[in-house]
Amino acid sequence: MPAIVLSPSLAAVTVCVYGFIAYTAILSFTGSKMFARFDFVGWRQYERLFENPRWITAIENMAIFGGLYIIGATCLGLFIAILIDQKIRLEGVFRAVFLYPMALSFVVTGVIWQWLLNPGLGLEHMMRSLGWESFTFQWLIEPERAIYTIVIAGVWQVTGFVMALFLAGLRGIDTEILRAARVDGAPIHKVYTRIIIPALRPAFLTVFVIEAHLAIKSYDLVVALTKGGPGVSTELPSTFMYSMTFTRNELGVGAASATVMLVSLASIIIPYLYSELRNDRHA
C-alpha cells in the first residue's frame, strides 16, 4: 500500500528532477547551441565557460553574495530570535512582523528594494528632501557596490524565517538547563556562548542548508533588483546560466554552468549533512 501511494510522486521526481539533471549533465558535454544536439565535444564547453569573464564575475559575485547572505542572515536571525525569546510582550506581533518579508516573492522584494535604493526615488531622495543635501547613497548604480544591495535585500527577506527556526530551537531548550547554569554561576553571555548556541546545532544545520540553496538558486531577486547590472557587475551563476541557455543560444555552455553549480552545491552540503546526521545517530 505505501508503495502504491508513493509511486506516482516517486516516478515524477525520478523523471522531472533526476532525469533532467542527468539530461543537463549530458548536454554539457555536447556542442548544443540553440537546440539540443548530441555531438559530444568532451570538456570543450567547460573550457569555454571558464574562459568567459562574465562567468568569472558571476562566481566572484556568488562568493561575496553567498558568504555575506548566509553569515548576515544567520547572525541577524539568531540575534532577533534571542531578543524575542526574552519573554517580551507582543511577541506574536513581532514574530509576524519579522516573518512577513518571507511571504513576499523575490521579485516583489527586488522591486521594493530597487525603489528604496534608487538614488532618484528612495533613501537618497528622501534624505535630500529632508534637507541633508549632501547625502549620497548610490550603491545600486555603482558597479563595485551593486552586489551588496542584493545582499541587503536578500538578508532582509530571509532573516525572519531564520529567526523563526532559531526561535523554535531556543524554545526547545529545557528551562531546567538555564536554571542549572544559574546555579553554576554562569554569567548570561557564557550561558549563550557555551550552552544555548551549541545546543542549537540542529537549527544551524537547517538554516545553513536553506540559506545555501536560496543563495545559489537566487535569480529573480537579481533580475528584479539590478537585472545583472550595472553592466554585468551583479551577474550570478543562475542569471548567467539563464542568459546563455535561453537568450544567447549557448545551450552547451549553459548546461555546463548549471552542472558546475550543482556539483559545487553538492560538494558543500553533502559532507555537512553526512557529518551532522552521523553525529545524530551516535548521540
Binding site: E176, I177, R179, A181, P198, A199, R201
Partner: peptide
C-alpha cells in the same frame, strides 16, 4: 554556596 540536582538532570547537551 549550594548545588542542585534537577529532575531532568539538565545536563548541558553540547559539553
Amino acid at each position: 554556596d549550594i548545588a542542585m540536582v534537577f529532575q531532568s538532570y539538565a545536563l548541558y547537551p553540547a559539553m
